[in-house]
Design a protein around this nucleic acid. Structure first.
Lengths: 249, 249
DNA sequence: CGGCGGTTTGATGTGACTCAAAAAGAGTGG
DNA sequence: CCACTCTTTTTGAGTCACATCAAACCGCCG
């Protein structure tokens, strides 16, 4: 059943592009039982501090991972499009140190953590693919840390837009120039460590300088070169080269 | 030979505490060839953009991982004591998206990436242990992102001190109250996303309020409770509970 | 048409930055 | 053990990028 999900196909396609999955490995994954859950906008899929619930593959929609502070401060750690496995770390971590919530109506497929773990131990190619996925996750966190720690407001926003453009292209959701960013400016602020007001002003500046255009939640990167140099974006940290392959056995 | 290294023992001890390693698994690791490299203070072990060189286990010393900006800005992503495996991600990633450098004279054992990868595929317990390690790494990045993005200067510094105190205790290097922090205030600034001057003033405030004392690079947490509430530190994100264990086979 | 989430604007405040120099340590060699 | 140098910490003064607060505006949907 889950075979027919667009998100699943996109996920498998991406995994396979990195390192070929044998038919058997793929079929074993497809045969895993998964619970389909749907959520409205701004619903928590996982709450900070909860026991992990399983590995969620975003079938449709858009989610973020975030952490909060007692004073109400919120830091979004990452965004995830359909086709991405979020909360893969719950394969091994028992407690969720961060929340996961939706930004638009979203459907996820929840796999049992032990199933995912077993899969990765039974099939080395799955082990590598999934481990690699979490390593790229970590690489993105490092880049975001640099973003919020050391870049100016306008660079932060530009950098985030370029990342989302790049990733939505990788997922086959856009041409890398025009993409849908299903988040409000408040969310953007929480991802960049800025206030909502200043995020708004940064976006206005990018528009005024002709670097981007926006139509509702559609973003068009008009001057990619300038955006890149402004934000010092380099896709290296997304590791498009893929994982190390096993030495031919 | 590497058996005798303090860092190796500490590493194995920590791995074993999380999930028991069979003797055979442990011995296989100990039999892996490793190159011992020594570095003076402030030397790069890995440079951003290089091909990954292998997995480095810190035998003695102290290192950080960092990213830089063309304008000279630097963001330290993490610190690592002796006994920690840094650059474990190079088992699967081919390009280093960040640098690694020393803060004091340091010795590392460099393992071949393919050996580590093979180890993790041959021994499920090693696979779990190493994957778990990278997941905790990522969890720490998320917390640091929150630190840098949303906490006040003084809270950031306090939070970092508590993390280092906690981790050095976990590694058996301190009692959790007094520990050696082998970094300058400039480095502290690069880790917290602050300027060196403001980092200095934040430290002075912590001292003036009696929350900490410092003697050179030795730090004493005097009022842990106040430090915790000031910085909202909670060790949950360090995942002391350890990894999910396999269902008894 | 009214309500509501989201965006935009304006005015004002401030936490943290920058620059520059002094003071304090730490290491080195005589 | 002192003189010298280099690094690190500390201090002071001035500035600015970004935050906060509050209100207006806008588009969408029921």
């Amino acid at each position: 059943m889950s075979v027919s999900e667009v998100g699943v196909q996109s996920f498998l396609h991406r995994m396979n592009r990195r390192a070929p999955l044998s038919d058997h490995a793929r079929d074993t994954f497809l045969a895993l039982p998964a619970r389909r859950e749907t959520y409205a906008t701004y619903r928590d899929i996982v709450r900070e501090g909860d026991a992990t619930k399983g590995c969620c593959l975003v079938a449709e929609g858009f989610v973020s991972r975030y952490k909060t502070l007692p004073n109400g401060g919120r830091q979004i750690n990452s965004f995830h499009f359909a086709g991405e496995m979020v909360d893969l770390q719950s394969a091994l971590l028992l407690i969720a140190d961060h929340g996961i919530r939706t930004h638009v109506p979203t459907a996820v497929l929840v796999y049992d953590s032990t199933d995912i773990l077993a899969l990765s131990e039974e099939y080395p190619e799955w082990g590598r693919a999934l481990w690699f996925d979490t390593l790229v996750d970590a690489a993105v966190f490092r880049e975001w840390m640099l973003n919020v720690g050391r870049r100016s407001a306008i660079s932060r926003v530009a950098h985030l837009l370029l990342e989302l453009a790049w990733r939505s292209q990788e997922l086959g959701l856009s041409d890398g120039r025009t993409f849908i960013m299903p988040v409000t400016q408040v969310d953007l602020a929480d991802a960049t460590g800025l206030s909502a007001v200043h995020t708004n002003r940064s976006l206005q500046r990018l528009r005024a300088d002709g670097l981007i255009r926006t139509y509702g939640r559609k973003v068009v990167i008009e001057e990619r070169a300038q955006m890149v140099s402004l934000s010092n974006f380099h896709e290296m940290y997304l590791h498009p080269e893929g994982p190390r392959l096993p030495v031919a056995a």
